[in-house]
Every structure is written in C-alpha cells, then in structure tokens.
Amino acid sequence: MLVLSDSEVRTLFTDDLARETVRSAARQFSSGEADIPARVQMRLPVDHTELLVMPGSLPGIGALGVKTVGEFPRNAAAGVPTAPATVLLFDPETGLPEAFLDGTSLTLARTAAMSVVAAEHLAVDRPTSLAVIGAGGQALSHIEAFARRFPLERVRITSRTRERAHATAAAASAGGIAVEVTADAASAVAGADIVISATTARRPVVPDDALAAHACVIGIGAHSPEHAEIEAATVARAARVAVDTRRGSIDGAGDIAQAIGLGALRRDDVAELGELVTGAVPGRAAHDGITVFKSIGFAALDLVAARELVARARAEGLGIDVAL
C-alpha cells in the first residue's frame, strides 16, 4: 500500500490538476457514472465536533475508496488543522487497500478548485474583486486559488474572530496577495464580484442587501439541513442556482433547501456543477443578476484526485510502500 504524506500531496496537487479532477468528478457524477452513497455524519461528544465518512466508487477510472474528514474547531487554538482528513483507496478487483493519503491539504485544494470551476461558469467575465467571510483554512486556500486563477485587484476578508482574519490576511500577504480586513460582512461584500462564505455559522452570514447586483455567491461552510450561510432571499432572487450535487447540497444543507421550502425555488431549477461543466445547463447568461453556488463536497472529488495523485506519485517515486 502506497502512503502519501500531506507534503507530498501538496507537491503533486497543482492548481491545474485540482481543477481538472473537479471537472472530471463532476461530469462522472452528473452522468451517473459514479456510485456515491450518502455520507455518514457522526456527531461527537465535544461541542461542534463531528466525523464524516464518505465512500464511493467510480468504475470508469478504477477508483474505489472512502474519504473521512472531521470538524474539530478547537484544533485552531493548538495550531493544527480543524478539518483533518484521510483518503483510503482499495483495489476494485480484490478490495485490498491500495493507497492511503493524508487528505487535509487535498480537501482544501479540491474545495477551492471546485469553487473556482463554479466561478468560471457563474461569475462575470474577468472578476477583479473577492470577498471572503470566515478565516479558517478554507479561507486562505480560496484566496490563493482565486488569486492565481483570476485577475483580482481587491480582496477583502471578515470573520467573527478578528485576530484570525488578520492572521489569514498576513498569510496571504506573505504570498504576495494584498488582503484587507473589514469590520463586518456588509463592508466585505460591498461591490465584490465573487463572495465566498466559509464559516461554521448556523444562521446566514452573507448580507443579501449588501451584495452587488452581479455578485456570484459561493457557500462552502454549512453542511446540515438546519444550517445556512446564505439567506433564502439571496437564493430566491438568483438568476442561476447551482450545487455540487443535488442530493448533498439540497438535502444536506439548509442554504438551498430553505428557499425551496418557502416555495421561492424549485428543486428542478437547481443545476449541478457537472451540468455546467458539460454545457447541459447554461451558467451566467448576463452581466447583471446574482448567481449562487453551494457545495458540501462529495467523495467522487477525492477519489478522482487520489487516483491521479497515486499514479503521479508512483511515476515520480514519491510516497512509501507499506507491506500489509
């Protein structure tokens, strides 16, 4: 069994590869080529902690495996990842373990890449301004991925923990990206072409009345039916609403489900990312009009990425082979 460390995953998983695997996974899922059962969500005794287990199979590329990811907010105080993750691949013929990957950086990179791919279809051409609500690991990974993909001229960030917002801004600055910390979400999103919400908030944090008329709003944080980062009013008036998977991000998160429950949106009007990627459903049709993308992640993303990373690692002599 090949074991890949977090540093090896980061070395191999380039922006181009991340976006390529997102498109491939989205296409395969929306076309019915991926068997992705519902994930298991286990609440843990410590407040606001949980463990998610997500199995999946993609016969077309010979990928069979399971991804685990935790939510441990208290880890931030210890300076360790708040969303530790792993990916285990099996030989689809024998069921024997084939590879084990540290999935923490993989999760950050593929989530940011998914948001970038969504923005390619839902944001205005050549977006130049980005607003981020939240200051965890996903905030920094999104700022970096969007700055490398789009000609950003202004990046703003806000968080309920101001110190973390400044720390994220400083980390981005060290990489050559200037980030302004704002006092509140309304100030952050004002005029922004793209708005990212990456929080553990239980109630909406993206102020609908402060959004630009053409904003692309992307929610990646809330992942329970009773929680929502994006107001139902925003979703209801959006010109296009899309999700990574309907089953996951409609049934598994409140952002879209609440608007549907109010009768402001029909389930059939919500597009999947794979449909945008293939052109089966159009993305943004005009400069004006809000667009919304909601994702909670799905195992196909991790399995497609892991399969490619293992192939590249073997070609480059990376990783450690462990005898079982």
Rank of each mutant, 00 (worst) to 15 (best):
A313Q: 08
G317N: 10
V243T: 06
D35G: 03
E8F: 14
A299H: 11
S295N: 09
S187G: 15
R240I: 13
H287P: 00
I256Y: 07
I218F: 13
M114I: 07
G289W: 05
I296W: 13
P73I: 03
A174M: 11
H48Q: 09
A171C: 07
G263D: 10
S5I: 00
I260P: 01
A313W: 12
T128D: 08
L58H: 07
T21I: 00
A212N: 03
F13G: 01
L101T: 00
D268R: 09
P207D: 15
Q138N: 04
H48M: 02
V80A: 04
Q138D: 02
I220L: 13
E229L: 09
A213Q: 09
A26Q: 08
T107N: 10
D102T: 00
S5Q: 04
T104L: 01
G136S: 03
R19M: 15
V310Y: 11
T94R: 03
A313R: 06
L122K: 03
S105I: 01
V3D: 02
E120N: 06
R203L: 09
F100R: 01
E275D: 15
A185D: 00
A18L: 11
I320Y: 07
T11Y: 13
R156S: 07
S57M: 07
P225R: 13
A119M: 09
V181Q: 00
A85M: 06
E71M: 04
K294V: 03
V22P: 15
A18F: 10
E144D: 10
A147Q: 00
V22F: 12
V132G: 02
A201H: 00
A233Y: 14
I61D: 03
E50G: 10
R10V: 13
D193T: 05
G221T: 00
D251R: 13
R266Y: 09
A271T: 10
E98K: 14
A185M: 03
